[in-house]
Design a protein around this nucleic acid. Structure first.
Length: 494
RNA sequence: GGCGCGUUGGAGAAGCGGCUGAACUCACCAGCCUUUCACGCUGGCAUUCAUGGGUUCGAAUCCCAUACGCGUCACCA
C-alpha cells in the first residue's frame, strides 16, 4: 500500500508572505504534487499580538498568485479542519488535559521576573539557561486549586531527563540532541493559548501530515516536538529542514535574508513586475538543484522534477541577478496577452498610457512591449527604458565641433552621408536606412563599425536607439523630425 | 557559552572512494551576429574542493582536530 502524502504550509499571519516562506511553501507543494499527495494550508495564528487579518489575506493572495493552490485548508475546507489554530483550541485543551493527568505536564506559577532572574544567574555562571523546575513537584490537585483561585499559571511539559532525541532528517540525516539541554518548556501560555511547539504537534498529527518541510531555523525546535510526539503516543511525520536563505548586506557579509537586503516579500516582487513562474523557478533553485543542465522549469515541470534528494544542506544565497535573468527569460517567452496584462499597469503608472487606454494606446503599448521585451528583466524597467529612447539626442554646433576629433572611419561615413543628403535631401525613415546601407557598401565600413563611427560622431555618447524601435516607441513623426535635425547638422558639416 | 548545522569558482551548484585532469547555470571577459543596448551563437573563466592531520593502492568524497560562518536556546512562530 502506497503511502498517501500529506504536506502542509503553516505560516503565521504576522506579515506579508516573504521569500523564505514562499520557498518553504513551494517545496511542500512540490513534494505533495510529485507524489500525488495533498497540499494543505493552515494558519498558525496563536500569536494574538502580531497576527492580523491583512497578513493572512496577503499570504493567501501571494500563494495563489504563485500558483500554489492548496487542496485543503483555510478557505477551501477539508475533513481535518478547522485550519486556523485559534479555532482548534478544543483539540489542544484535550491533549493538555491528558498530559496533565498523566503527569507529563504541570502548572508553573513562576513569575516572569523570577524566570528572568534565574536565567540571568545561569548565564552568569556560564550555564545553559533553562527552566530550573521549581514548580515541577506541585501536585496537580493543588495546582488546579490555585488556578481556580485565579492565580496566573502556564503549563510546562516535563521533558524526560538524560535522553537522546534523534531527528531523522530527510535532508540532513540523523541529528541528535540531548534532552538535558532542553529544560521543561511552556506548552500553554498563561492566557490559555498553546505555544507553537505544542500546537504544531497536535495539528500535524490530527491532520495526518506525513512530511514536514520547513526552514533550518526550526531544526533545534524539532527535539521538543519529537518528545511531545512520544508523550502523546503519536506517530511522527518525516522531517526535512531546508537551508536558510542568505542575503549579502552592504558590507558584503552574508546573513539571513531580511529587510535590509532589499525586498523580501512576494508582493514586492509582484509589484516590480516579476512573473509568478519566474519567482517559482527561482525559489525552487534556492537550495534545490535539478539533475541536468536545464535550469528553467515551469511549475508543472517542477512538480515532476522535484526531489528532496537534491536539496542541499548548505545555505542558499539570494541572487537578484539570477532572478532577473530568469524573469527576463520568462518575459521573452510570454504570450502577447500576458505581456500586455503585466506590462500595461506599469505604462499606466508612468503616465505613458491613460488609465482607460484608447484603442490606439493599446496598440502602441502592445507594440512597445513586444519590441522591448528582450531588453527588460522585469516590467518595472519598462517606463524608464522608454524614457531613454524618448530622450532626444540634441544635435547642435557643439557636436559638430566635436567631429573634428573623430576617427577616420567616422569622418568617412559622415562625408559620404553628406554627399548623399545633398543629392537627395528628402528623407524618410526608410530612405535613411537605405542610405546607411549604401554608405556601408561604399566605404567598406560596415555593421558595428559603421554605426559605431556614427555614434561617436553624433554625440560622443555611447547610446543611440535603433531606428525601427525608435519609430515604434516615439512615433514615426517625432522620429522624422529628429532625423531632419540630425541631417541638417550633417549638411552644415565641414 | 551549550547545542546544532554548514564551508567546492564572484553567485547558485553537481559530486555519495577510482568514468572529475571538478558537470551545468547566472555573472564576468573575448569573439561573432546585429546600425545602439539587448537577444542569440562561439570560446574563456577552480592545477583545486576552508586548514591541518589520519584511513586507503587511490579522497572533494570516510575519520579526527582547528578555523570561520550561521542557526537556536521566549508565555514568537
Amino acid at each position: 500500500m502506497e503511502q498517501q502524502y500529506r504536506l502542509r504550509f503553516a505560516p503565521s499571519p504576522t506579515g506579508p508572505l516573504h521569500i523564505g516562506g514562499a520557498r518553504s511553501a513551494l517545496f511542500n507543494y512540490l513534494l505533495a504534487k510529485k507524489n500525488g499527495g495533498t497540499f494543505i494550508v493552515r494558519m498558525e495564528d496563536t500569536d494574538l499580538e502580531r497576527s492580523s487579518k491583512e497578513s493572512e489575506e496577503n499570504i493567501k493572495d501571494s500563494l495563489r498568485w504563485l500558483g500554489m493552490d492548496w487542496d485543503e485548508g483555510i478557505d477551501v475546507g477539508g475533513d481535518y479542519g478547522p485550519y486556523r489554530q485559534m479555532e482548534r483550541l478544543d483539540i489542544y485543551n484535550a491533549a493538555v488535559r491528558r498530559l496533565l493527568e498523566e503527569g507529563k505536564a504541570y502548572y508553573c506559577f513562576c513569575s516572569e521576573e523570577e524566570l528572568a532572574r534565574e536565567k540571568e544567574e545561569q548565564q552568569a555562571r556560564g550555564e545553559v539557561p533553562k527552566y530550573g523546575g521549581k514548580c515541577r513537584a506541585i501536585p496537580l490537585a493543588e495546582a488546579e486549586k490555585r488556578v481556580a483561585a485565579g492565580e496566573k499559571a502556564v503549563i510546562r511539559f516535563r521533558v524526560p531527563e538524560g535522553e537522546t532525541v534523534v531527528v531523522d532528517d530527510l535532508v540532513r540525516g540523523k541529528v541528535s540532541f540531548d534532552t538535558d539541554g532542553i529544560g521543561d518548556f511552556i506548552i500553554v501560555k498563561s492566557d490559555g493559548i498553546p505555544v507553537y511547539n505544542f500546537a504544531v504537534v497536535l495539528d500535524d498529527h490530527t491532520m495526518g501530515i506525513t512530511h514536514v518541510i520547513r526552514g533550518e531555523e526550526h531544526l533545534s525546535n524539532t527535539p521538543r516536538q519529537l518528545v511531545l510526539y512520544d508523550a502523546l503516543g503519536y506517530e511522527k511525520p518525516k522531517f526535512a529542514h531546508i537551508s536558510l536563505i542568505l542575503g549579502r548586506d552592504n558590507e558584503g557579509k552574508l546573513t539571513k535574508m531580511s529587510k535590509r537586503h532589499g525586498s523580501t516579500s512576494v508582493v514586492a516582487y509582484k509589484e516590480q513586475g516579476y512573473l509568478p513562474e519566474a519567482i517559482d523557478n527561482f525559489l525552487a533553485l534556492l537550495g534545490w538543484a535539478p539533475g541536468g543542465e536545464e535550469e528553467l522549469f515551469t511549475l508543472d515541470e517542477l512538480e515532476q522534477a522535484f526531489s528532496l534528494e537534491h536539496v542541499s544542506k548548505s545555505p542558499a544565497v539570494f541572487d537578484l541577478e539570477k532572478l532577473k535573468w530568469i524573469n527576463g527569460m520568462y518575459i521573452r517567452g510570454a504570450s502577447g496577452e500576458r505581456l500586455l496584462e503585466y506590462g500595461l499597469p506599469f505604462l499606466k503608472k508612468a503616465g505613458l498610457v491613460s488609465a482607460e487606454p484608447t484603442a490606439d494606446e493599446m496598440i502602441w503599448a502592445m507594440t512597445v512591449i513586444d519590441v522591448l521585451k528582450t531588453h527588460i528583466s522585469c516590467f518595472a524597467e519598462l517606463p524608464e527604458l522608454i524614457e531613454k529612447y524618448r530622450a532626444a539626442v540634441v544635435y547642435d554646433d557643439d557636436v559638430l565641433a566635436s567631429l573634428k576629433d573623430c576617427k577616420e572611419d567616422a569622418l568617412a561615413v559622415l562625408r559620404a552621408m553628406k554627399e548623399k543628403l545633398e543629392r537627395n535631401p528628402k528623407v524618410t525613415v526608410d530612405s535613411y536606412k537605405k542610405m546607411l546601407k549604401e554608405i556601408s557598401k561604399e566605404t567598406g565600413i560596415k555593421g558595428r563599425n559603421l554605426y559605431h563611427s556614427l555614434r561617436v560622431a553624433k554625440t560622443g555618447e555611447e547610446q543611440g536607439p535603433d531606428l525601427d524601435k525608435l519609430s515604434v516607441i516615439i512615433g514615426r513623426d517625432l522620429m522624422l523630425e529628429r532625423l531632419k535635425k540630425f541631417i541638417k547638422m550633417f549638411q552644415r558639416m565641414d
